[in-house]
Amino acid sequence: MTSNIKDSLKGFFWRYSDARRLPLYQALVSELTNIRSQAGLVENAEKLNSLKHQFKGICRYLHLELDMQIDAMTTPEQLLYAVDNMHKEVAAIEHEL
């Protein structure tokens, strides 16, 4: 699964020119950090759904088939865990871009 995410991330970034990769990478890291910090402050289901929706949108752009896993999340901790994982995977490919 981890290698799948890594492959998808690489596949996504390699589609773009060298000049585009860095801004895209920075935007992705910034959004993941943003979702991560907001997930720690979630107070109600509406806010959680909003963050799930944002995360789902990002995953779709990255061609990651995680819709079902995201829909199944019921607690902020689950979302936080998934976002953390994604963040680690994104950080791991930084030197390859």
Binding site: R20, P23, L24, A27, I58, Y61
Partner: peptide, 11 residues
Amino acid sequence: DNSFNLEVCNA
């Protein structure tokens, strides 16, 4: 309002 989505779409 999602900078990543915005960046991808723009690209």
